[in-house]
Design a protein around this nucleic acid. Sequence first.
DNA 1: AATGAATGAGATTTCATTCAT
DNA 2: AATGAATGAAATCTCATTCAT
Lengths: 181, 181, 181, 181
Amino acid sequence: MGRPPLKKGAIERSALELFVEKGVDGTSIRDIAQRAGVTEGALYRHHRSKDDLVRHLYLQSFTHFGEIMEALASTSTSPSDRIRLMIAQLVELHARDSYVFRYVLVLNHHLLKEVRVGERDFVAALARAIGGPSSDFIAQLVLGIIVQVSVAVESAQLPGKLADYSPRLIAAAMELVGKPL
Amino acid sequence: MGRPPLKKGAIERSALELFVEKGVDGTSIRDIAQRAGVTEGALYRHHRSKDDLVRHLYLQSFTHFGEIMEALASTSTSPSDRIRLMIAQLVELHARDSYVFRYVLVLNHHLLKEVRVGERDFVAALARAIGGPSSDFIAQLVLGIIVQVSVAVESAQLPGKLADYSPRLIAAAMELVGKPL
Amino acid sequence: MGRPPLKKGAIERSALELFVEKGVDGTSIRDIAQRAGVTEGALYRHHRSKDDLVRHLYLQSFTHFGEIMEALASTSTSPSDRIRLMIAQLVELHARDSYVFRYVLVLNHHLLKEVRVGERDFVAALARAIGGPSSDFIAQLVLGIIVQVSVAVESAQLPGKLADYSPRLIAAAMELVGKPL
Amino acid sequence: MGRPPLKKGAIERSALELFVEKGVDGTSIRDIAQRAGVTEGALYRHHRSKDDLVRHLYLQSFTHFGEIMEALASTSTSPSDRIRLMIAQLVELHARDSYVFRYVLVLNHHLLKEVRVGERDFVAALARAIGGPSSDFIAQLVLGIIVQVSVAVESAQLPGKLADYSPRLIAAAMELVGKPL
DNA sequence: AATGAATGAGATTTCATTCAT
DNA sequence: AATGAATGAAATCTCATTCAT
C-alpha cells in the first residue's frame, strides 16, 4: 500500500560495508545514509537505533553462515572430506562476500556471545565435524588462520588476495585438524 | 627537574585498557580520565590529542614486542629451537600483559601499516626466523592461531585462560612451521 | 456521498486524549496515529496540520461548552438557581467527559485568547450570570476550585473522583458567589 | 581549581522561565542556551539531561516553598491568623517571583506526585494549618483560586496584576476555610 | 480513504579540545 | 601538573510533513 521499501537494502548494505571498513563506532549514521543515497532519518524507518541495525546485521549474517555450514555438516561424504569441504567453504564465503565474512569473523566479538545462544552456530558446526575432545580448540585454530590471513591480505601485509592462499590455507587447516591431505 | 608526572602512567594505562575493551572510537577522553582518576584536561598535559595518545601507545607496544622478539631471533640455538622460543614468547607476552598483547595484535589498526615501516617489527622477525619462500604467510598463520585462541578465551568461547592452551598452541604452531616437535 | 470517514473520529479522539495526557508538544503525530490504529499519513486526510487539529479540537470543545452554558444562562429560574445550575453543570461536564473538560480548562492554552474573541464563551456566560462589578473575577474563582480539585483528583492527590466532591464544590462555589446555599 | 561555574545560574534561570512561558516540551535546549548566553553543551556540565534539569528545578522550588510555608505553620499566632498568613504568603511568593510560583503550581503535575513523597510539602503544611476532616480538600480550593487568578492575570483574561486581587483573594480563601475575616 | 517510506529540519546529547583558574 | 567550565562541531535520534502506491 505505502511505498515499497526501496532503500532498505541499500541502507543495510552500506552499513555492513562501513562497519567493516571503519568499525561500528567509527561509522556515523550520516556515513551510512550518504553511501546509501538516503537522508539520515530513513534509517529509523527500518531499525530503531544504530545498535539495532548492528545486531540485525550480525544475527542475519551469523545465521546465514550457520545454515550453510550445517548443510555441509550433514553431507554423506567421509568425515575427512566433510571437514575439508567446510574449510573450503569458509574460504569460498570470503571470496563471495568478504564484507559479510569480516563482519562476522573479525568484528564485534562481544555480540558473538549473545548470538551463539540458540542461533545456527557455524563455529559449533565446524567443531562437531572435527570431533574429538579438543574439537572446540581446533575449530578456533582453523578459524584463526583463515581470519588472520584475510586481515593480512586486506591490510596489504600479504600480497594478492585471499583466494591465492586458498590451497595452502586448506592444507594448513587439515594439518591442524590432524588429517593431512 | 620539576615534579614527576604522577598521573601520566595512570592515564596511559587506562587508555590502553579501554582501547582494548571498547575500541579506540568507543572510548572517550572522559572515559580515560575517569578510570585514571583524573580530569579531562590532564590528558592534554602529556599528549597533544587523542590520536597522539593512540599512536604513542601503539608505537611503544609494537616496539616493545619487536625488541623482545628480535633479541630471541639472534640467540645461538638451533633454528628450530629459535622458532619454538619465539612462539612460546608470544604466549608468554600475553600472559604477562594481555592488554598490550591485544592492543598490538587484535585491534586491527590502520596504524599497523605505518608502524611496520621502520619500527622494530616482531612479525618480520618471526618470518625471518621461519625462513623459506612462504615465511611471511606462515608467520601470519602462527599469529592467527594465537590471536584467535586469545580472543576466544577472552570472550569465554573457550574455557580457562590462554596459558592452559600454551603447549597445544606451541605444538600446532610448530606443525604449521613444518617442524613438528 | 462517498464513504464515511471511518477513522476521523478515532483520530480526533486519540489526539484529544493524548493532548490532555502528555500535552500538545509532548504528543507526536505517530502517538496519535498509533492510538487511533491508523498510520501517520491518515491524519492529513482530515486536517492540514497538527496545529490545525489542535485548533479544531479546541474550538469545537470550547464552543460545545459555551452552548451548554449559555442555554442554562437563559433559563427562567431565579438568578441564584441559575448560578447553581451552571456550577453543577461544570461538574457534570467533567463527569461526562473529563478529557474534553481538561482540554478546555486545564491546558492553559495560548489558544484561549484567540478563541474567546467571538466564540460562544462559557466563561463570559458564567460571569454574566453572576453579575456585579467583580463578576469576571468571581467567575475565575469558581473555575479555579473546580479545575484544581479535578487536577488533584486526577493526580491522586485527593482520593476518589471529582463527583465525590460535587456537593461540597457547589457549596463552596455558591459561597464565593456570595449566595450561600 | 577549574573555572568557577559562571553560567550555571543563568542556565537554570533561563530554563525555569522558558519552561513556564512555553512549557517543558515546548522549550528546546537551544532556547535555554540562547537565553543564557551559552552554547548547548554547557548545560550538560551541570545536568545530565533535560529531564534532570526539569526535576532539579522542580525539587528545588518545591522545597523552597515548603520551607517557607512550614516556617509560618509553626508561628505562635492564633490558628486563624496562621492560615491568613500562609494564604498571604502564597500571594507574596507569586509577587516575588511569578516564574517559580507558576513552575511549581501551574506546571508539571506529574512531577508533583514524585516530589510530594518526602520533600517539604507546602500543600500538606497548608492542609495541616487548616485542620479538620476536609483539610486536604479545602487546601486545594485555596490553591485553586490563587492559581486560577494568577493564570487569568498572566493571560490577560483579568486586567492588572495578581497583587491587585490580593485582598479579595485572601478574603475569598478565608471564606473557603470557614473563617471569614 | 489510507498506507508507510522517505524527507528535511531540528531536537537531545556526546565529545575532543581549550582555557581561565 | 592539574582542574573543570565552556566551546563548537558532530553524533544519534525525533518529528511534522509529503508523496508514490
